[in-house]
Design a protein around this nucleic acid. Structure first.
Lengths: 175, 175
DNA sequence: AAGGTCATGTAAGTGGTTACATGATTCT
DNA sequence: AGAATCATGTAACCACTTACATGACCTT
C-alpha cells in the first residue's frame, strides 16, 4: 500500500486535481493516511507515465489553470490488483511511546508534560472524529463507518489509560 | 525520532552488538518500533562516524567475531537533545483501514476475510503483549508499563469494534 | 494590509526496505 | 539431515519529506 494505490482509489469515483486530492486527505481519510503536495504531484506524474491515469488541462477564469486526472482501464486493473494483493500489517509509529520507553533518562516534569501533550493531541483527534461524524455519516459506506469507529474507540482507550497513568504519576513521589 | 535516536537510547544502558540490538527490538519494544539488519548496521556505522558511539571488535571461540558498540559522551548529549526536541505526532499506517475505506469496490466475501484477518492479527498481538507482561513487568519502569497498557487497551478496543462490525456485516444481506 | 484559497511543480536529501552474500556451530 | 542461532555487512532501490519557487484572487 502506498500513495499510488490510494490516489488510484480516490480517482475511481471521479476525476480530481492534485489540489482536490490534498483536500480529500484532510478529513476523514487523513486519520489513517496523509500525503503532502511533494508526494501528490510526483505520484500523479508517475501514474500518468505508467498509463494508469490521464491528464486533462482545464483553463479557468480568475484562477490558475488546473490539471484534472481521470483513471484509465489500466488504472482500475492496477487498483484491483492492489486490493487482491496480500494485506500488509499495520504499523504504529509513535515518538511518544519511544519517549515513554526511555523516560527514566529524563526528569519527572518532562514525563508529565509529554503525557499531557499526548492527551491533548488524542483529545483533539477524538473530538475531530466525533464532530465530523454527523457530516460524513450520510455518505459513508458501512465499512467506512467501521474505520471511523475503530479510530474513535482506539482514541478513547488510549485516553483512558493515559489519564489514569498521569494521575498515578502525579500522586506518587509528590511532596 | 528515527533509528539513530532509538539505538542511542538502547546503548545508554550497556554496549551492544548489532545482533543484540535486533533481538532487543523483538519484544516488547517491537510493538511500537522495529528495524531490520539493513537499517541497524548502516545506522551503527553512521553513528560511529559521527562520534556518538565507539566500536570494539571482540574475538570469540567457535563463533564469528562481533563488534560491540558503546555510547560516547557526545552520543549521550545527542540523545538528550532528541529527548528535548519537540515531540512528533503519532502516525498510524494501516493497509487494513485503507482497504475498508475502499471496500465497496470489492465483494462482500473479501471484506469479511479482511476483517477476520485483522481480528486474528490483533488477537495475536494482544496475546503476545499479555503473555509477555509477567516476564517483563519486574524490570520495567512505570512509564514502560504505561506503554504496554496503551498497546493492550488499544488492541482490546480495536478487537471489540471489529468483532461487532463483522457480526453486523455477516447478519446483513445474508440468505 | 494580511491572511486564506486556489493552483502546480522541482530539487535535494533522508530514511528505510529488500535482496544478496557468507559461514561456523549447535540443537532437534 | 535440517533448522535455528550467532554474526556482519553491501548495493540497489523506493517512498517520502522539506524547502524552494510562483502568483492571482478574495475575504476580513
Amino acid at each position: 500500500m502506498n500513495s499510488q494505490d490510494v490516489i488510484l482509489g480516490l480517482l475511481h469515483r471521479r476525476p480530481l486535481t492534485g489540489y482536490e486530492i490534498k483536500n480529500t486527505f484532510e478529513r476523514p481519510l487523513s486519520f489513517f493516511f496523509d500525503a503532502g503536495f511533494g508526494t501528490i504531484y510526483p505520484t500523479l506524474a508517475k501514474l500518468e507515465s505508467l498509463g494508469y491515469i490521464l491528464k486533462e488541462s482545464v483553463e479557468q477564469d480568475n484562477r490558475p489553470n488546473k490539471n484534472v486526472y481521470a483513471i484509465t482501464e489500466a488504472g482500475r486493473a492496477r487498483f484491483k490488483a492492489y486490493l487482491e494483493s496480500p494485506m500488509e500489517k499495520d504499523t504504529y509509529r509513535s515518538d511518544f511511546l519511544i519517549r515513554l520507553f526511555f523516560a527514566h533518562y529524563q526528569d519527572r516534569e518532562t514525563l508529565i508534560e509529554w503525557i499531557r501533550e499526548e492527551i491533548a493531541a488524542a483529545e483533539a483527534e477524538y473530538r475531530a472524529l466525533q464532530d465530523g461524524m454527523p457530516d460524513w455519516e450520510p455518505q459513508m459506506t458501512r465499512a467506512q463507518l467501521l474505520c471511523a469507529q475503530i479510530g474513535i474507540a482506539s482514541s478513547e482507550a488510549k485516553l483512558r489509560v493515559l489519564r489514569e497513568g498521569l494521575a498515578e504519576i502525579e500522586r506518587s513521589s509528590e511532596p
